[in-house]
């Protein structure tokens, strides 16, 4: 991403509940909440653990590793700002810590992605303020 070119795709409207995640991403860390009561991680970040509803949560750095739980290849863009990217892969990753998260798979050949593929986070600094945690295929 050239820094001289404006980034026109949707950007998160960051709120107090999600700021730690986006701040960490900017530092190239994948930070997700973990519940001290039940031990489970969750994503996206909540005020109460969605598993046991405790409010005793902490932010933890995830390994950035996981596998593809499902994916789709967008042949039609989600609006004109994504038109130049078609075809592109949107995947739901099952992180090794447990939670699932939606992301993009960065690959030269979109046809290579498959359910069960191991993936690793790759941070994309799309603006000086915003970094998106995307993933690459370990087999690439």
């Amino acid at each position: 991403m050239s820094e001289t070119q404006a980034y026109e795709k949707p950007q998160p409207v960051i709120d107090p509940g999600t700021k730690p995640f986006w701040d960490a991403a900017r530092e190239h860390r994948l930070s997700i909440p973990r519940c001290r009561a039940c031990g489970k991680h969750h994503f996206y970040p909540r005020e109460l653990c969605p598993h046991c509803h405790s409010d005793d949560l902490e932010w933890t750095d995830a390994s950035g590793k996981g596998e593809i739980y499902s994916y789709t290849i967008a042949r039609k863009p989600a609006g004109p700002v994504f038109a130049a990217d078609v075809p592109y892969v949107i995947a739901m990753i099952a992180l090794d810590e447990g939670p699932r998260m939606l992301t993009n798979i960065v690959t030269k050949d979109v046809e290579r992605a498959a359910i069960g593929d191991r993936v690793t986070v790759k941070f994309d600094d799309v603006t000086p303020e915003l970094t998106l945690p995307k993933f690459t295929l370990d087999k690439d």
Binding site: Y44, D85, L102
Partner: peptide
């Protein structure tokens, strides 16, 4: 891209077909 949507539409998922496509693939 507010609240829960900030973790969905930044990826360019076509709505709503993309979510149904993920389910179909699975």
């Amino acid at each position: 891209s507010v609240l829960t949507m900030q973790f969905e539409n930044v990826w360019g998922i076509p709505q709503p077909v993309g979510g149904y496509a993920l389910a179909a693939r699975r």
